[in-house]
């Protein structure tokens, strides 16, 4: 997978209430959720961003609630992938389970400025900043997670492997 897009920077501990505030959880419609993506962290985010752009977080991105509405809102807003120093564990699960690509790179988060363009190459495990041509490595995706993404998420993975004798 290759993603090329402009980076929108956020700080540490961006929680799910900031990604999609609870007041919008009376629906699970992706487009309605997308309209409020990142609203409590940056109210203008959805207006400013373009399809294919990348969210860049600090430590513990996606902490807080288990709401899958958070990765759904991000994906439906057109964000191509999320890069962060580290992810909260339920957000991490959710992203892979529903097929939103996420990558960990602590160095990139410190080195890049908002608005710069990057190219993420998940196969090579690199992120390159277009202007400066600086290269960063991404923490490798665990094999099982790659399997989930390749199968198109957890439910498709289950449909594929059901009946077979799994990881016992």
């Amino acid at each position: 997978m290759i993603f090329k897009g402009k980076v929108w920077k956020f700080g540490d501990n961006i929680d799910t209430d900031a990604i999609i505030p609870a007041r919008y959880l009376t629906t699970s419609d992706p487009l309605e959720l997308a309209a409020h993506c990142m609203e409590d962290a940056d109210p203008d985010f959805v207006k400013k961003m373009q399809a294919g752009d990348i969210i860049l977080g600090g430590e513990n991105f996606g902490c807080g609630s288990s709401r899958e509405h958070a990765p759904i809102a991000i994906k439906a807003a057109g964000v191509s992938c999320v890069i962060a120093k580290s992810f909260a564990r339920i957000f991490y699960r959710n992203a892979f389970n529903m097929g939103l690509p996420i990558f960990e790179s602590a160095e990139l988060a410190d080195a890049i400025k908002e608005g710069e363009e990057v190219t993420v190459d998940s196969a090579k495990g690199t992120i390159i900043i277009t202007d400066s041509n600086k290269s960063f490595t991404i923490n490798p995706i665990p094999p099982f997670m790659e399997e989930l993404i390749n199968d198109g998420g957890l439910m498709k993975h289950i449909a594929k492997t059901r009946g077979k004798n799994e990881t016992k």
Binding site: E68, R93, N94, N97, L154, I158, E166
Partner: peptide, 16 residues
């Protein structure tokens, strides 16, 4: 866990 995990568990009775 997330909603997709819940769906998987309701279906199979198992979870990774």
């Amino acid at each position: 866990v997330g909603s997709t995990d819940l769906a998987a568990a309701m279906l199979t009775g198992e979870l990774w």
